[in-house]
């Protein structure tokens, strides 16, 4: 990215005068050094500390400095029946979100773009962005009420339409959790997700639409061949990011919707890798084991990111 443009610049500095150059610009260095020290402490020390996944960490140890045990924690992890369930939940929730919540903002952006009234369009945008700005604690508060078994709006609507006889206890049965996770995420991020696409749409050359009009293209043909084609690079870029985050199944959302994993009715369907790390690590004090589960997730995520990027490279839309 930008660092590449820097590399392309001719190198002015010569290595020999390095130290004197450094001292000459010591004030500039002092602007950077606090940030770099912060990064080393809060980003790189935990990265080193992840070695505790190959060790037997005990309270009082510094992460990464305990006794080595090799792949023992991973052997436990892969033979733990709970982990199979955790992996299933993570993959199902993430894939459902990928299939439904990834295309939804694209479609919504296309529909917004087709609206004729300028003020109506702006109002819809402003309102649909709102849930993005609240925390998942607030969103969960609203969703508990919206989906409440006791006069909740969704239950009242379904009852009055005669679709159900009794209110559904949405947070009382595990089988409802996957759709709830997908739909509440959609509720919160649908509007906000359109922004990048709308920006990409606005940079499409209007002459393309005029030319298509001349050729007698219909509205859907223009949407598909001009608008969608125009935002294709954006879609691919965001897809790479989404795939690279596939195993991060929105920790905040799942924690708050399950009452910080205290709702035992939901745990069979709601426990994902991140919440599992929290549960076994901080609640059951199996520190190294939890770190191993976390490391497993990071490794898979990076592999997915690189894989997605490689696929995208074929369409000349690679991230790096």
């Amino acid at each position: 990215m930008s660092s590449q443009t820097a590399l392309q610049q001719p190198k002015v500095s010569n290595k020999k005068g390095g130290l004197t150059d450094f001292i000459k610009q010591i004030d500039l260095q002092f602007m950077v050094i606090p940030g770099i020290i912060w990064l080393i402490i809060f980003a790189y020390i935990p990265m080193y500390g992840v070695l505790m996944a190959f060790q037997e960490f005990k309270l009082g140890d510094f992460p990464g400095m305990s006794q080595w045990v090799g792949f023992k924690q991973f052997e436990y992890l892969f033979s733990d029946p709970n982990f199979g369930r955790v992996l299933r939940n993570t993959i199902v929730i993430s894939l459902l979100k990928l299939i439904i919540n990834f295309p939804a903002p694209i479609i919504f952006a296309l529909l917004l773009n087709e609206l004729r009234g300028k003020y109506f369009k702006q109002s819809v945008q402003t309102i649909s962005y709102l849930p993005h700005f609240i925390s998942w604690v607030v969103a969960a508060t609203l969703m508990f009420d919206f989906l409440s078994v006791d006069n909740g709006a969704v239950n009242s609507l379904l009852m009055s339409l005669g679709l159900i006889d009794r209110p559904i206890h949405f947070f009382g049965e595990g089988r409802y959790f996957w759709p709830i996770a997908v739909l509440t995420d959609l509720w919160k991020e649908l509007g906000w997700g359109t922004i990048i696409y709308l920006a990409a749409i606005s940079s499409i050359d209007p002459q393309l639409y005029e030319a298509a009009d001349m050729d007698g293209a219909g509205r859907f043909q223009k949407m598909w061949h001009i608008t969608v084609a125009g935002i294709r690079p954006t879609i691919i870029l965001l897809l790479i990011f989404t795939v690279g985050n596939l195993l991060n199944a929105n920790f905040d959302q799942i924690m708050t919707l399950t009452g910080q994993m205290t709702n035992s009715l939901l745990i069979d369907y709601a426990d994902v890798i991140d919440t599992y790390v929290y549960r076994v690590g901080l609640q059951q004090a199996r520190y190294s084991y939890a770190a191993a589960a976390g490391l497993f997730k990071s490794v898979i995520n990076i592999a997915l990111l690189l894989g997605a990027n490689k696929l995208a490279a074929r369409t000349e839309n690679a991230l790096f």
């Binding site: 660092s3 990064l39 402490i41 809060f42 980003a43 790189y44 020390i45 935990p46 990265m47 080193y48 500390g49 992840v50 505790m52 960490f57 140890d61 510094f62 992460p63 990464g64 991140d274 790390v277 929290y278 690590g281 901080l282 520190y287 190294s288 939890a290 770190a291 976390g294 490391l295 997730k297 990071s298 990076i302 990111l305």
Partner: peptide
């Protein structure tokens, strides 16, 4: 800086730090 955008230690090492 860029490396930290793709890798992080995760919850456990951060907690103990």
């Amino acid at each position: 800086c860029l490396i930290t955008m793709f890798f992080n230690g995760g919850l456990m090492p951060t907690y103990f730090l």
